[in-house]
Amino acid sequence: MEIPVFTVDAFSNLPFRGNPAAICPLMHELTDDLYQKIAAEMNLSETVFITSINPSDNFTTGSRFRLRWFTPTTEVNLCGHATLASAAVLFKHKENVNPKLVFETRSGDLAVTQRGEGYVMDFPLNPPTKQDANEFKDILKAAVGDHQIQDVYLCPITKKLLVRLSDSCERSVLASLKVDAACSSEK
């Protein structure tokens, strides 16, 4: 089986500059094991695999594609430079006729629009929602100790917790925070 691979330096118009990614446009999905082995062989920060959503589309006329990003050791949820590099391969090398491409990913839909010689990408917003601090008291205790907490937010998509300490909290306090792993693992 032959797999086309493009190495693209994102954020640069000069060779050997920017942020490199390996781009593999595929006619059909492969196994996760094979994706991982290819990414390990490429040995770049990310190798991205592009497949068509609609079997009747091709890389020249399709406007929606599936993207998956792999480091040499694992699959990742989001990679901006490899997404831009994927769009560049489709626009420049596959001569895609659409002004905008949409990539379905683990992080949601990512749109890339061709604008002159460059590309513009829309990142997902993933806004957090305010939470009751009491629901996270053990993890908050482990992370910030007895410091006064003003707000707690959770992003349900990324599973990230945002903790806002009191506005009177000094920067030196933040710099000296140490997570108490024993406390956080109790629950």
Results as ranks from 00 to 15, higher is better:
P25H: 05
T7P: 12
V120R: 05
N54M: 08
K159H: 14
T7V: 14
E41H: 10
W69G: 00
A111D: 07
Y35G: 02
L174D: 11
M1A: 10
S107W: 12
D57C: 05
P124T: 01
R171Q: 15
D9Q: 08
F70G: 00
L26K: 01
A21V: 03
T158Y: 12
T158N: 07
N43P: 10
L174N: 05
K159E: 15
W69I: 00
L140S: 05
Y119I: 02
S168R: 02
I149T: 01
M42H: 08
D151Y: 11
T51F: 09
F136G: 05
Q131L: 11
V89A: 04
D138Q: 13
I3W: 11
V163H: 07
K141W: 05
F91D: 06
S56L: 11
D146V: 05
E104S: 12
N126W: 14
G80E: 03
Q36Y: 09
S63Y: 09
T129V: 14
T61A: 10
R164S: 15
N98G: 05
M121H: 05
I139R: 01
N134T: 13
H147F: 15
R68W: 07
E2R: 06
L161S: 01
S12M: 06
P20F: 10
P99W: 08
E75C: 07
R171H: 11
N96K: 01
L78N: 05
T129M: 09
K94V: 04
L125C: 13
M42Q: 11
N54P: 14
A39Q: 00
M121C: 09
Q150M: 03
K37N: 09
R106V: 06
S52Y: 03
L30F: 11
C169G: 05
D132N: 13
I157N: 14
M42K: 03
I53P: 02
R64A: 05
C183R: 03
I38M: 08
T83K: 00
S56K: 09
A85S: 12
T158W: 11
K92W: 13
Q114V: 06
V179H: 08
D33Q: 13
K187W: 15
E2K: 08
S63K: 04
A182M: 09
P20W: 07
M42Y: 04
N126Q: 14
L161V: 02
V152W: 02
F123L: 14
V102N: 06
Q150V: 02
I38N: 03
C155G: 08
H81Y: 07
L90E: 08
G62P: 07
A182R: 04
V112H: 03
C79R: 00
K160L: 10
Y119A: 04
C169K: 03
S107G: 12
M121E: 08
L161N: 00
V120A: 09
Q150W: 04
A142E: 04
T7Q: 15
W69K: 00
D33A: 13
L67W: 04
K178N: 13
T47E: 10
N19E: 11
H81I: 02
T113S: 13
P20Q: 03
S12Y: 07
E29H: 10
N134A: 14
L165V: 01
P20R: 00
K94P: 06
G18S: 06
T60M: 14
I3K: 03
V89P: 04
L34Q: 13
L67K: 00
A182Y: 10
W69A: 00
S63V: 02
